[in-house]
Design a protein around this nucleic acid. Structure first.
Lengths: 156, 156
DNA sequence: CTCATATATTTAACATGTTAAAGAAATTGT
DNA sequence: ACAATTTCTTTAACATGTTAAATATATGAG
């Protein structure tokens, strides 16, 4: 067994990255997954994805919103958003119009079917989030949100 | 303008979720994206994805690893891992063998081409991570990692 | 030993992420 | 007014995420 030329012999100390679980990218991924694991089954029961939920939820909050604004608020890339909009429109949850003042823009609005989903999902979503806040600590959630925001805006 | 029957008139206060930017799922997503924005261009120059990098990096750290263990360490779902393994094997970065003791398992090992990528990417990755740590605060990174880990393990 | 069950991996099908490029409409400079 | 440039959205192509089901092998009860 005494150290032959195994793959991990090349620079195990000097060259290689550190432990996987103490790396920010994976830690953020794991934390996010743990959180979403609470929401996803509920959303699946209502037959919507996490991203679709973000879109209709933002429309319910903000009223009419154009695609760029939506991409920004929901943190969804434009190509994904195009597909999500198409799908939500086909399912009657939102409506889509060209902006009369700027023909490039697409204006989105929630439709009655979308409002129905909002009404169904919101209470459950809220309950899950509140349970999470309670278990993790309401104040610590605030601290974590602040720290995450600082990390997200480091570049600006 | 005086409040007609706009979509957001239904339960704006009682029913709807709170502000998007103060929600853990999106805050975690935004933070992760901000971090990965530092790494992705570098990885792209070396023609690998973030997930492919995680896989070969773990093989370099841990030597021979089976697929389940890899899925766990790299935090990649089994179906994604199957495709990533196929791609990395085709590109000569890893090798794949059936476990002699348990025919269900697939054992992975890094190949010379993978070692070359490790040698190329590791220093750059390290430099980026260290710059990030410095800018955010080395100790605050530790605190953040602890808080994220606690969030990720709330369910256990 | 054999059947039922459990575990590891793969496949399938669809949704989203990611980058680059194309298309369409607005803006700017001249 | 017009050509060049910029901005917004979509398309394309490929990689990964997500859930369910299929496949292959191990394991355990009887």
């Amino acid at each position: 067994m005494s150290r032959e030329k195994t793959p991990d012999d090349l620079g195990h100390d000097a060259l290689l990255p550190h432990n996987t679980r103490r790396s920010l990218p994976i830690a953020l991924l794991r934390a996010r997954e743990a959180v979403m694991a609470h929401f996803r089954p509920m959303l699946a029961r209502h037959d919507i994805t996490e991203q679709q939920w973000r879109v209709i939820r933002i429309l319910a909050e903000a009223g009419r919103v154009d695609a760029s604004e939506m991409a920004d608020k929901a943190f969804i890339l434009a190509p994904s958003l195009t597909r999500i909009i198409r799908s939500l429109e086909e399912r009657g949850m939102i409506t889509k119009h060209k902006d009369a003042d700027d023909g490039r823009r697409v204006l989105l609005e929630i439709a009655p079917e979308g409002m129905r989903v909002i009404a169904d999902v919101s209470p459950e979503s809220r309950a899950i989030y509140e349970q999470l806040e309670t278990r993790y600590g309401r104040d610590r959630v605030e601290i974590l949100l602040d720290m995450l925001d600082e990390l997200a805006t480091l570049n600006d």
